[in-house]
Write a protein that binds this DNA or RNA. Sequence first.
DNA 1: AGCAATTATATTGTGTGCAATATAATTGCT
DNA 2: AGCAATTATATTGCACACAATATAATTGCT
Lengths: 153, 153
Amino acid sequence: MTGKVAAPGDDPLLLDRQVCFPLYAATNLLNRLYGPVLRPLGLTYPQYLVMLVLWEEEPQTVGALGARLYLDSGTLTPLLKRMEQAGLVRRTRDAEDERRVLIGLTERGRALRADALHVPETIAGGRSPEGLDQLREGVRKLVAMLAAPGGAG
Amino acid sequence: MTGKVAAPGDDPLLLDRQVCFPLYAATNLLNRLYGPVLRPLGLTYPQYLVMLVLWEEEPQTVGALGARLYLDSGTLTPLLKRMEQAGLVRRTRDAEDERRVLIGLTERGRALRADALHVPETIAGGRSPEGLDQLREGVRKLVAMLAAPGGAG
DNA sequence: AGCAATTATATTGTGTGCAATATAATTGCT
DNA sequence: AGCAATTATATTGCACACAATATAATTGCT
């Protein structure tokens, strides 16, 4: 009762036939790759993404950050509180609408940008830019499909 | 002291220039997509991946599962214990080498395969198979690069 | 045989992610 | 104006993921 179960040609449950799995594996591997590079900056990978968004424009509401990063308050609230504890961001209620919380950078948060400038290059290492561009576009299309209302069915 | 920070053309820290981010977003979105489909089976997404591997061949050691899924014992041990509690797998010390733990399926675990057969189709929904094939190959190449010793520098 | 180095798994601590729920502020409808 | 519905964020509970460390079994060297 052990061993191979189905013909390899048409089994829909073979791991190597899943689209999702390489994506899952690549994300885990990328996290492991970023970890050591971001640790000296005192950032985790999702925290780094938040900083990228804030370096582009600040302040932003929690909701706006979530819309950009596809994360909800259940993930962002504790993450932003940790970043506040670390002295990178400030969280202030929006006076115009007390439901909203504005996330702005501290001086330390702004200054960290200079230290982060080397990160993309360090991560990219010796990889071919063309392959990366192609991959980025492919995955971006997938994200657009998945994020569409109804999950792109 | 707020607002845009650098020229859009050559800023390496723009979120939309990162390869990593679409990958990260796609994985989160895929997890959310799989969740409702797998919940009736009593599985999480990583647990589903473990089942895919075991349905191909069992029993396997914890290490072999980890090599296939790019996960270590810190992730797999508690996950497998939960699956044991759920009655899907059995964990037994290998008599040949007492360091190893063999993961085998219970009858319930084997029977679950029939219920899982519809999952890939349900997830794929109306998406074009060609686009998915292309994407799978692209991401698979990235995984191969990232998993290579030295991180493919 | 004896013991250091290696290997396989487990444990601990921290940080995500997300569903479900809660709370407070605002909007919209009458 | 008053109140139901909506919106924005926070909280709770559960399940990963991983670095660092611990423990026990095996291997390899002499």
